[in-house]
């Protein structure tokens, strides 16, 4: 009975909207769908989203591994502060995060005059979008790795050290193989969020068509222009990404379970 309720709930709130996305996307036919996606502004949005992901995800992987390694394997003052700071983006609304960047880097902001003097643009430009996305997605990899690395302890690393391995060898040969599935999982989640982030990016982007619009922003613009089928066509790409993420995620989870 309970299972039936859960399944009905799932169907109603998750599967139905997903089906609706694709139904709406193809409402005006395949021709309109392809035309919407091939349109230069749409292509620019896709390109910008991919560019953002290509910068943010590797940066977060590097940061996430470094932070998790430090927090899980070492004792140092300020450790609990670092742990809290990593969680900050989860606690703060993305819109606030975007506004903070405007406040810091915007024309009226702290570094605004200096940036203008040096002809650098952060807000209403690609760097701002990358920064905002990086901020919002920064907990994903670290959050995934910290409990895993803490559970694994430091004995294997200590052993590697007594056997003569240096820091890099210990990391590449012992630590990384032990966390690779957890890391992959974190990357998938980080990637999904980086592509789908709306709030923070919306604040810093300025919505310049063909220049600073990411896919979620482009969806909003099309929707506001009453091109419902077009909006859903671009949205269906994001939905496809979500589905691919889910499939990958369950493969990784299955692999992780098999390893343990």
């Amino acid at each position: 009975m309970l299972t039936a309720v859960a399944l009905a709930f799932l169907a109603f709130f998750l599967l139905l909207p997903l089906a609706a996305v694709f139904a709406q996307a193809f409402e005006k036919g395949v021709g309109h769908y392809l035309a919407t996606i091939r349109e230069p502004n749409a292509l620019a949005a896709i390109e910008l989203t991919l560019l953002t992901v290509a910068i943010v995800v590797p940066a977060n992987v590097a940061f996430g591994i470094a932070a998790a390694w430090a927090i899980a394997k070492f004792r140092f003052p300020g450790k609990s502060v670092l742990t809290t700071v990593i969680d900050l983006p989860f606690a703060v609304s993305p819109v606030i995060a975007g506004l903070v960047y405007v406040l810091v880097f915007g024309a009226q902001g702290w570094f605004g005059p200096w940036l203008i003097a040096h002809n650098l643009k952060v807000i209403f430009a690609v760097p701002g979008i990358v920064l905002a996305t990086a901020f919002v997605t920064c907990p994903f990899v670290a959050r995934e790795l910290i409990p895993l690395m803490q559970a694994q302890g430091t004995d294997e690393e200590s052993t590697a050290v007594t056997l003569g391995a240096n820091g890099w060898q210990t990391f590449w040969r012992v630590t990384l193989p032990n966390i690779k599935w957890g890391l992959f999982y974190g990357v998938i989640l980080c990637n999904a969020r980086a592509m789908g982030e709306f709030g923070a990016v919306s604040v810093v982007s300025g919505h310049i068509r063909g220049e600073t619009n990411t896919m979620p922003l482009h969806v909003e613009i099309l929707y506001n222009e009453y091109d419902i089928a077009g909006a859903f066509a671009v949205a269906s790409l994001l939905a496809l990404l979500a589905l691919a993420t889910l499939v990958l995620k369950s493969i990784v989870e299955w692999r992780q379970a098999a390893v343990q």
Binding site: D155, E156, S158, T159, A160, T162, R173, V174, P177, N178
Partner: peptide, 13 residues
């Protein structure tokens, strides 16, 4: 030195 941990710390992979 050869060090053996209580829980062996074998490289699991």
């Amino acid at each position: 030195v050869g060090f053996v941990f209580q829980h062996y710390a074998l490289f699991r992979h």
